[in-house]
Every structure is written in C-alpha cells, then in structure tokens.
Amino acid sequence: MNTSQLRQAILDYSEEIGIDKLGFASADVFESLKQRLKRQQELGYQSGFEKGSIEERTEPDRLLPEAKSIISIALAYPSRTKDRPANKKEERRGVFCRASWGRDYHEVLKAKLTDLDAFIRERFPDAETNVMVDTGELSDRAVAERAGIGFSGKNTSIITPEFGSYVYLGEIITNIPFVPDTPLEDGCGSCTKCLDACPTGALVQGGQLDAQKCLAFQTQTKDFMPEEYRSKIGHFIYGFDTCQAVCPYNKHMDVHKHPEFEPDLDVAKPKLKPMLRISNREFKETFGHVAGSWRGKKPLQRNALIALGNDRDTASVDEIISVMSNDPRPVIRGTAAWSLGKIGTEEAYAAIKDAMKQEQDDQVVEEMEKGLTFQEVTLTD
C-alpha cells in the first residue's frame, strides 16, 4: 500500500471509529508559533501548566526524530445539556465548563488514536509514531490549524466549520510522508465578541491570551484565588468558556455524537453545598472520570465557596461556618470566611469575628478581614 492509498484508508477508517474530522499536516517546525511562545514567555503570559520547552512544543522532530507528517483529529462535544436542572434556593448549583461535561476526553481521544495508530502500523510496518492528546508537548491547536481542521479564532480556540469550537483535538506524529491538507482561511474578520466578553481582559488581542488572567486558569489553581477574579467566575467551579459561548460560529451549535461526552447533570452542574463536605473517595467516585478532576477536589471546593458567596446564598451559611471553623486547609478556611462576608448575614459576620480569635494562619486572618469589609460597606451604604 502506497502513502496515497494509506491516506485514503486512514480517512475511511477514521469515520468507522467515530472520528469527526481528520487532517494531515507537515512536520515542519512551527516557526510563527515559536516566536509567539517566546513573546508569551517574555510577557509572563504563560500558565505554568505547559509541558516541555518551547523547542519541544514547536519542533516535531524533537518528539519523533524521523517526523515527516502529523495526523490531526477532532471529536465534537455537546454545548447544551438535554435537561436543565433546577437551581433551587437551598440547592444552588455550580457548573463545569462544557469541555469537562462527559468522560475525560484525554481517555476517549487516546483510545481512538491508539486504534488509528494500530491500523496504520498494520498496513505500513515501517511506520514510526508518537500519539499525543493535550498533555503532550506539541500544540494541538497549531497542528489542527495546519492540518485544515479549523482556523485559529481570536478566542485562541480552533473553530471548525462543522462544529464550531466545541471540539477536542489530538494527533499522531509519524515518519510517513503524507500529502498535507490546506489550512483554512481566517474566519473571524472584524468580529471582537470574544474579546469584548472576556471579563478580565485575558484576551489581550485576537489570538493572544494572558493565561494568568484567564478565569479558566484561575479556577484550576490551588492557592487563594486573587480577589479581583472571584466575583467574575460566577458559578463556574472548573474552567470558563464564555469566550466560546459568544462566538457566532457556536450559535445554535450543539452536537451529540458521542455517548461518552453526554453530561450527567449532577456532575456537570453539581449542587454546591455537598461539594464542601465531599470525601476523597466520594470525589473520586463522582468526579474522577471527568477532565475537571485532574487538580483534585481542593480547587473545586474553593470555587464552590466562591460561587456560594457570589450567589449570596443565605441557606448555606451554617455549612460554610462549619468549613471555616473546622477545615484543616487554610485556603478553604480563608475562602469560606470571604464567602460568608459576601453573603452578608449578621450570623455570618459574627462567626467570622469569633473564628478570627482562634485563627493562627496569617493568610486566613487576612481573608477574614476581607470578609468583614463587606459589613463595613453595608453599614456605609
């Protein structure tokens, strides 16, 4: 089988195994990306979650010495739940971003890429490959853009004509010299909806992201969230995808092709109060299969406290007081105090003052003081 025949066979097989879109790219150095990443580094715009050096992220032959081509794949995921859970006053819910609604996409894409890899090796015994999904060094989006999967939007997402930006991406680097596909033309034009909707100005300009200001990044940190971001996350406890939701290409886009990505409402939009007391075992059993669990329960619990504060949920005051008084983790105690102050009942303020008398951690005390400033504002008003 020659490379042209194999190329078509790969396309046919990808449809059989449920890959929604597949494209071929050269394995040349991603020179423009390399320059952008260097500039990002100079400006301090990186998140710190990036894997590998800039060279490893832009030079495919560092990951596979004989690299000639890269096969890029995309799988579409839903943007709406089939049912809408009630957000009752005493059962307030948080929300995971859409990319973490179903089964962890790393596992799903890895399985399909592994099947595709085996298919290639069976028909091309001399094939050398390297399979990657998101956590690899290579930039999935840069590969997808070069392979014609979609164009890179101003919101830094790959936007496909068929599925908008609601797609997961993965790739296989190989030594097989496939004919590459043609990249798509930029489709954003003069539109700035995503830039205008970004609450923190993280989208510095079209296609450039200050990851430190991105709320999706902030929901994944483990320390105290800077106060300027807390009110802006609303009810998000993992990720933040407003920059995708406002994109015109995503209007009315809602694809339900993969059962693995269908959301369980109590996981995708969980009740917040139970999140505060969930055990490690319960957390793993309930959330362990979704991508948003990768940082553990602590960031999600911190974010749940912030969400309850943002909602001024008076029904959760007793639960939050218990957390502030008894949780061994300073970040959780301090955030609970801030949340109580934001909710703003007399009981909440009295509890903060009592807890402050016993608190030994300086950062927690600082958060308690922040919580009490809400009372001062109320009295002034």
Rank of each mutant, 00 (worst) to 15 (best):
P78N: 05
E171I: 05
W294L: 04
F374I: 04
S165Q: 03
R92K: 15
K193F: 00
Q8A: 11
R277E: 14
D327A: 06
R333Q: 12
D140E: 08
E31T: 13
P259C: 02
P125L: 11
Q358D: 12
E145V: 12
K222E: 12
S157F: 15
I10S: 03
V131F: 09
V108Q: 08
Y349I: 00
P183M: 04
G296C: 09
D28N: 15
F236C: 11
K251D: 11
V365C: 10
L300P: 01
A111I: 02
A127W: 07
P274H: 04
K232E: 10
P263F: 01
A315Q: 12
R98T: 09
L195N: 02
I19F: 12
A74I: 04
R121Q: 14
E346D: 14
L43C: 02
R103F: 10
Q41G: 00
K112N: 09
I233V: 15
E56D: 02
T58A: 08
I332C: 05
R7Q: 15
D264M: 03
E55V: 07
E285N: 11
K269I: 04
Y45W: 15
G371H: 05
L272D: 04
Q358A: 13
A9C: 04
T192H: 06
K269H: 14
L6W: 07
E359C: 05
Y168L: 06
I321W: 06
P248V: 03
V29S: 14
M324A: 15
Q363K: 12
H252S: 13
Y349P: 00
T129H: 11
R230W: 09
L209Q: 10
P177F: 11
E162A: 13
V255I: 15
T219L: 03
L340T: 01
R103E: 14
C214E: 02
D115M: 14
F24N: 08
Q208P: 00
R281P: 00
L372F: 01
A76H: 06
R302Y: 10
R84I: 14
A336L: 09
E262N: 07
Y249N: 10
C214R: 03
L372M: 08
E128G: 01
R62A: 01
D266T: 07
K353Y: 00
A337G: 14
Q8C: 01
T3K: 11
S69H: 13
G234E: 13
D241V: 02
L276I: 12
T192P: 01
G102K: 09
Q301S: 08
L272Q: 05
W294M: 05
M275W: 10
K34N: 09
I343W: 04
K232M: 07
E367L: 12
I10H: 06
V377P: 00
C188G: 09
E66Y: 10
G150P: 06
L116P: 07
T156I: 08
P78Q: 05
K251N: 12
I158T: 07
Y13G: 02
